[in-house]
C-alpha cells in the first residue's frame, strides 16, 4: 500500500515525455503542480470546479481536467502515467486547423480545447459529428468561438481520414 504523509516531499511524474522531480503536497492538484512547480502554464485555471475544461491535459492519451486530479494519483512507480500538456504539441494538425479557422478570440480556453481535440483525434479518429460534439461539450469558451472550434476539429478529423495518416500526434 502506498502511503504519503501530509506536507511537501519530492516525487517523480512523467510530463511531456520527461521524468520530472516535483515537490508537492498530497493535496496539490495537477493543475498547480504543472503551473507552479514546472512552469507549464498552458493548462489554465478557470472554474477549478470541473465545469470549463480550460485546465484539460492528456493522461495516457485521455483528456482529463487537471483541476480535478491530485498529482499524487499519478505518482505510481508500478504504472507510470504519461501526462501531456499543450506545450508538447508542436504544430499538430489540430493546431494548424485552429489557426486556419480562427478558433479563438481571447485565447484563454484554447489550450484546453486543443488538448481535448488532440485526445479525440488520437482516441476516436473516425468520430462522427455527434460523437465530436459530445466530446467538445466538455469545455466552455466564454468568447463563444464555438462555430469556429467545431469547424476546426471537424476539419482535423476529416483531413486525417482523407490522408489516412496518423492523426494529429505531435
Amino acid at each position: 500500500m502506498q502511503r504519503i504523509k501530509p506536507g511537501r516531499a519530492e516525487h517523480l511524474i512523467t510530463v511531456n515525455g520527461e521524468q520530472r522531480r516535483v515537490s508537492l503536497r498530497p493535496a496539490d492538484t495537477l493543475l498547480y503542480t504543472l503551473r507552479d512547480e514546472l512552469g507549464l502554464t498552458g493548462a489554465k485555471p478557470g472554474c477549478e470546479n470541473g465545469d470549463c475544461g480550460a485546465c484539460t491535459v492528456l493522461v495516457d492519451d485521455v483528456p482529463m481536467k487537471s483541476c480535478l486530479l491530485l498529482t499524487m494519483e499519478l505518482v505510481d512507480e508500478s504504472r507510470p502515467r504519461q501526462i501531456e500538456t499543450v506545450e508538447a504539441l508542436d504544430r499538430a494538425a489540430v493546431q494548424e486547423q485552429f489557426l486556419r479557422h480562427w478558433a479563438f478570440q481571447c485565447g484563454y480556453c484554447t489550450s484546453g480545447f486543443l488538448m481535448l481535440a488532440e485526445g479525440l483525434c488520437r482516441q476516436r479518429p473516425d468520430a462522427d459529428a455527434s460523437e465530436m460534439l459530445d466530446w467538445m461539450r466538455s469545455n466552455i469558451c466564454r468568447c463563444t468561438s464555438y462555430a469556429e472550434l467545431i469547424h476546426a476539429v471537424a476539419d482535423t478529423l476529416q483531413r486525417s481520414a482523407r490522408e489516412g495518416a496518423e492523426p494529429a500526434h505531435p
Binding site: 500500500m1 502506498q2 506536507g7 503536497r25 498530497p26 493535496a27 496539490d28
Partner: peptide
C-alpha cells in the same frame, strides 16, 4: 488550490482500505 493538506493512502485490497479507514 486545496488550502488544507491531508495524507494520501492507496490500498491494494478492500480489507486493507477498511482497516486503514
Amino acid at each position: 488550490m486545496i488550502p488544507v493538506d491531508f495524507s494520501y493512502w492507496r490500498p491494494d485490497t478492500a480489507e486493507e482500505a477498511v482497516a486503514t479507514y
